[in-house]
Design a protein around this nucleic acid. Structure first.
Length: 755
DNA sequence: AAAGTTACGTGTACGGCTAT
DNA sequence: ATAGCCGTACACGTAACTTT
């Protein structure tokens, strides 16, 4: 590549001054960070420069950056400067860091958006790093800006400061008059509202969402680095393999600085009008709950609030008319027995009553009676009151029943011994309670059994995990938690096979049909809101999965057309070669419904919910299918093995309702030719290709391919089985397992022999 | 009554992939 | 290098039940 021109150096210098200049008089010492990527070696590293040094010698630094670019490196700049002390502390551990969210300066006045072209045939393939026709791509980008993005932005009063063509798509830069909290500007507005607006508004203009473009929401990360304008995008090639150097150039420039509140109001108004703005505070959206706060708490109500709810959960089934008085006596007896101070007990007791009255399980006019029961208990001689007394004597429970309930109540109260609750003025609603003991905080989150234990803000009792804490979201100043921890649960609806079992009852043997959860086939699909990937689906298996999904959807539709949908449907799925063997698959429609409720696609209060279910299933973004292959016993415990297949939602939408042969054809067309014959595979065979079968295939292959007696060449063994349509990774794992289990060994490198 | 069994729901570990 | 997401495998807790 040619050395940088003077013009380019000046442009880059001016641009970076615009990016970092506003931070000049910040009270903290800041660094600006540049990152370099070598696409040939696939290395990536960050380099910090003191902000003041940088701004004091702009053209020199710009030239250095461009020289690096001319040495075929991709050049990126951090969208935010970083706090020097924090960055350096991180750098001691990670010498090549480009900074994290924690080290980034928390104020911003610019927003950068990437609008990328997805893989479009004949235009661009990101995975293969191929651009088919650079001229055409740039034209497409220009047209995308002029015909779709510009009008969409104008509608909400946005004029970008810059629009760049970056090689893979467009970069929009918005500039605001003042600094805004980075989390609000980047995440709440950029990622949450503006990205949504653009995606929808562009889609609206094109009548429906154009599949070939996407707003990259990952760029709203404080630690992001962005491709530097006027450098060249290095890394793409032509289909023939010729390296392309695509200059990042502006398509549009203005000097507009936007008023953040004004713009945000307009975007929110548009989203609101299109019913896309998330309702805040309804509790309907769990994500929003994280940003919501509980009411300020009265310290005296703390215990009542916490234990009341938990006790109420235990007592609820027993709080029935006719025995409520005695239950109140017994409960008060329990509180007294546990030596709970009267004031605390009062709060707890009162809360339980409130809950039950609120739920219609008790009546306001009875409140006096309940309180009298409580007061009598606490006035009486301790030896005269007990939990069990009223239940045994007045309600004639047996001892076993009394003890069972007592155990449950004790489990609730055990929390009190372990932790001392502390008061917060308000807590995020997702947090149930926080306890403190010598600077160690135990935090209970709603819906998660195990507490999280923090020292200050640092989580100490759990390793960094995806769901735990490692990728944090700031919930309030004191606690950071990971958003996803609360949303990743899959909501499965099960499709069950049936089988006939023989069971001994006394001396006779009884045969009956049961739902077989265990041995033959377990297929489940869930209505996952987010899963969109098709990545690891083996095509030939996708066919069988598609068949099953389509069938399940048909069933669901059948179910909703019926006035009184039964709890399960069955159908004869396939007749095998050996004769009349039917595979019966059952769809319990109540479980499908439950899944829909969990996903808040339907409301349990909706009388027509079952009738709406079928349509919703068809609209589900994606469907996840699982195949349960076998049970395994290890160390006396039963372990399960599952294999999952995912089908893209659009595909399902297309596939559902179409007859099975059609489905097979459609998927086959999309598949690679090499897989063609596998589409004729027998469903039975696919369903039974479990680990044991794979193991046998491995053993067989080693035997067959050991022609010279020196051992079968490992790669040949792998190829042999892969050719049958088995995922390569799985084959390699099976080989390792065979060796581990002592069936095979390596006489020398890359050769396999049987023992 | 205690110990064991079974089935199920839910949380975690970790690698692979993407992006810049 | 870092963030974020998915896919896979698996561990753990517990309810309901049976066996000892």
């Amino acid at each position: 590549m040619r050395p940088p021109t003077k013009d380019n150096i000046k442009l880059v210098a001016k641009y970076l001054e615009e990016v970092y200049g506003p931070y000049k008089d910040t009270d903290e010492e800041l660094l600006v960070v540049f990152a370099y990527q070598d696409p040939k070696k696939n290395t990536f590293w960050g380099e910090p420069v003191l902000l003041d040094d940088f701004l004091g010698d702009l053209e020199h630094h710009a030239e250095q950056l461009l020289i690096m670019n001319s040495n075929t490196l991709n050049i990126y700049y951090s969208i935010l400067p970083h706090v020097k002390s924090k960055f350096e502390a991180l750098r001691e551990k990670k010498p090549k860091t480009r900074g994290t969210r924690e080290t980034a300066y928390p104020k911003a006045k610019r927003l950068e958006l990437d609008v990328d072209f997805e893989n479009v045939e004949g235009l661009i393939n990101h995975g293969k790093k191929i651009i088919y026709d650079p001229q055409k791509l740039k034209l497409a980008a220009k047209s995308l800006w002029a015909s779709k993005i510009k009008p969409a932005l104008e509608e909400v009063g946005i004029t970008p400061r810059w629009v760049f063509y970056t090689g893979g798509g467009l970069k929009l830069v918005l500039e605001f008059t003042d600094f805004v909290d980075a989390a609000i500007l980047l995440r709440e507005f950029g990622k949450g509202e503006l990205a949504k607006y653009l995606t929808e508004a562009i889609g609206e203009q094109a009548k429906k969402k154009p599949p070939e473009i996407a707003v990259d929401t990952a760029v709203f990360d404080e630690a992001r680095v962005m491709r530097l304008p006027w450098t060249k995008n290095v890394g793409y090639t032509t289909p023939e393999g010729r390296r392309l150097y695509i200059p990042v150039e502006p398509l549009f420039e203005s000097d507009v600085q936007l008023d953040f509140e004004e713009v945000r109001t307009k975007v929110r108004a548009w989203l609101n009008a299109h019913n896309l703005l998330k309702e805040r505070g309804t509790g309907e959206n769990e994500e929003d709950d994280l940003e919501l706060w509980t009411e300020e708490e009265d310290p005296q109500e703390l215990k009542g609030e916490l234990f009341g709810k938990k006790f109420a959960d235990v007592l609820r089934p027993y709080w029935k008319e006719g025995q409520r008085h005695f239950m109140a006596l017994a409960f008060a007896g329990f509180l007294r027995e546990k030596k709970i101070p009267e004031e605390d007990a009062k709060a707890i007791f009162g809360k339980v009553l409130d809950i039950f009255i609120g739920e219609g399980l008790d009546e306001s006019k009875e409140v006096k009676d309940r309180w009298r029961a409580f007061e009598d208990t606490y006035k009486a001689n301790p030896s005269e009151v007990s939990f069990g007394g009223p239940l045994l004597e007045k309600l004639h429970w047996d001892v076993k029943e009394v003890n069972k309930l007592k155990k449950q109540l004790e489990r609730v109260w055990a929390l009190n011994k372990k932790y001392t609750p502390i008061q917060f003025t308000a807590l995020p609603k997702k947090i149930e309670r926080i306890y403190e003991d010598g600077g160690v905080y135990t935090v209970f989150f709603k819906g998660i059994k195990d507490p999280f234990i923090f020292e200050g803000t640092k989580l100490i009792d759990r390793k960094n995990t995806k769901y735990g804490i490692s990728y944090e979201k700031v919930v309030n100043k004191d606690f950071v938690i990971k958003l996803e921890a609360f949303f990743t649960q899959n909501n499965y609806a099960l499709i069950w096979p049936k089988k006939v079992v023989t069971v001994q009852r006394g001396k006779t043997f009884v045969q009956y049909e049961v739902i077989d959860n265990d041995t033959v086939l377990g297929i489940m699909f869930s209505l996952m809101k987010r899963a969109q990937h098709l990545a690891s689906t083996r095509d030939f298996e996708a066919v069988s999965a598609a068949r099953l999904v389509a069938k399940a959807l048909e069933l669901a539709e059948d179910a909703v057309q019926d006035d009184k949908p039964p709890t399960a449907y069955s159908f004869a799925y396939q007749v095998t070669e050996d004769g009349e063997r039917l595979v019966r698959v059952y769809v319990p429609s109540n479980l499908l419904l439950e899944a829909a409720y969990k996903l808040k696609l339907l409301k349990p209060s909706d009388m027509n919910a079952p009738q709406k279910l079928g349509q919703l299933l068809l609209k589900a973004k994606s469907i996840r299918l699982g195949r349960k292959l076998k049970n395994e016993r290890q160390g006396g415990k039963v372990k399960f093995a599952f294999y999952y297949y995912i089908i893209n939602g659009n595909a399902v939408e297309e596939l559902a309702g179409i007859n099975i042969e059609e489905i097979a054809k459609r998927v086959a067309v999309k598949a690679e030719e090499a897989f063609e014959d596998t589409f004729n595979f027998d469903l039975e065979e696919a369903l039974e290709l479990d680990d044991a079968t794979l193991h046998n295939a491995v053993i067989q292959a080693i035997k067959e391919l050991n022609k010279d007696g020196e051992g079968a060449p490992e790669e040949k063994v792998v190829k042999h089985i892969v050719a049958k349509g088995v995922n390569e990774d799985r084959v390699r794992k099976a080989i390792e397992k065979a060796i581990e289990d002592g069936y095979a060994y390596r006489p020398k490198e890359n050769r396999l022999k049987l023992t």
